[in-house]
Every structure is written in structure tokens, then in C-alpha cells.
């Protein structure tokens, strides 16, 4: 079956392709660009595409969080760090053609193979109950009941990173 371009299904497919294209384009800019700052911008484009995919899959909450956290916080912090550390980075001047290239290529291929095999052959379960009603209550309930383990683990990771950054900042201050 080949839905026409202007039917809802056809439009949905076009939108899906645009989102995939955005994600791949962003990822390619991020990996292939010679300037570090352009890589970060590429990463932001990639996150935008991924956020769009979440929205396409009917999870607006995850989509918005993706944009808020990854574009709004992660990318901006990375850009900020690059600006402070290396004003004009010459990524191209570094030689990456070492053992790591030869190790990375088969490893990357293996991961890609595994993921696509999983996607094609895996048993897809029916989606669990969606938290799309916009009610904060539902969100809190599922965060603190079903996903409480994940929630706690993430908070530990965040706590460790905060303490780590504080310790690093402290060391830098003592030297002066």
C-alpha cells in the first residue's frame, strides 16, 4: 500500500522522514565537522531530530524534556566549555589514524548490527500505560512507584557529579 502524499498517513511518513533526516544530518555534522563548535551545533540539531521522533511517537513529555535538557542544558554547557577552553580548536590537526580507528570501526559495526538485529527480531511489547494526560499527579506516581529505582539511581548520579564538580572547583581555587 502506498498512501498518497496528502493523506494523513502520507504526511506522517514525510514528517517521519524529515525527522530522521534531521537526526542523521545533525549526527553527521557532529562527527565530520572539523571545528569543535560546529560539532556541538550538529549535536543540537541531532537532539532536535530525536526530540521530534519522540513527539512523533506520541510522547510529548519525553520530547519536551529531550529539548529542555539536551539542547537547553547539555549543548549550551558544552559550547560554553569549548569557548572557555579552546578559542579556535584545530580538530583536524590531531591524528586519529592510530590503533583506535581500527578498533573503533569493527566495534561500531558490531553495535550497529546488534541494534538493528534487536530492532528487527526483538519481541515488541505493547506500550505500557502512557503518561500523556498532562497531570502532574500521574507523572509523580509513576516516577515514585514504578520507576523509583531509576529515579533514585539518577539522583545518585547527579549527586556524585555535583560533588565531583565542587571538588574540582575547590582544587582550582586552592592553587591560586
Amino acid at each position: 500500500m502506498n498512501p498518497s502524499l496528502f493523506s494523513p498517513e502520507g504526511l506522517a511518513e514525510v514528517i517521519f522522514l524529515i525527522l530522521i533526516g534531521t537526526t542523521i544530518l545533525g549526527a553527521s555534522i557532529a562527527t565530520l565537522s572539523k571545528r569543535l563548535i560546529r560539532s556541538v551545533i550538529g549535536l543540537a540539531i541531532c537532539f532536535l531530530g530525536v526530540g521530534g521522533l519522540y513527539y512523533f511517537l506520541n510522547s510529548p513529555f519525553v520530547a519536551m524534556m529531550q529539548l529542555l535538557i539536551y539542547v537547553g542544558a547539555v549543548c549550551i554547557t558544552m559550547t560554553f566549555a569549548i569557548m572557555l577552553a579552546e578559542p579556535d580548536d584545530e580538530k583536524a590537526s590531531r591524528k586519529y589514524k592510530s590503533v583506535s580507528t581500527w578498533a573503533a570501526a569493527p566495534l561500531g559495526g558490531l553495535i550497529a548490527y546488534g541494534l538493528s538485529r534487536l530492532a528487527i527480531q526483538g519481541q515488541w511489547l505493547a506500550p505500557a500505560e502512557k503518561i500523556n494526560s498532562g497531570s502532574v499527579k500521574d507523572l509523580g506516581m509513576s516516577l515514585l512507584n514504578e520507576y523509583s529505582m531509576v529515579f533514585e539511581l539518577i539522583s545518585i548520579v547527579l549527586l556524585v557529579s555535583i560533588i565531583g564538580s565542587l571538588a574540582l572547583a575547590r582544587v582550582g581555587r586552592r592553587k591560586q
Partner: peptide, 19 residues
């Protein structure tokens, strides 16, 4: 349903634009 969140999510791009 997440209008407030959406506004904050897209407002984050303004900083990136200035950068």
C-alpha cells in the same frame, strides 16, 4: 498538555542562538 514545558524547552534555543 505540556504547554509550560514546551515554552521552556524552546526558549532554551535563544541561548544557543546568541552563542
Amino acid at each position: 498538555d505540556f504547554g509550560l514545558l514546551m515554552i521552556f524547552a524552546f526558549a532554551a534555543f535563544a541561548g544557543l542562538a546568541v552563542l
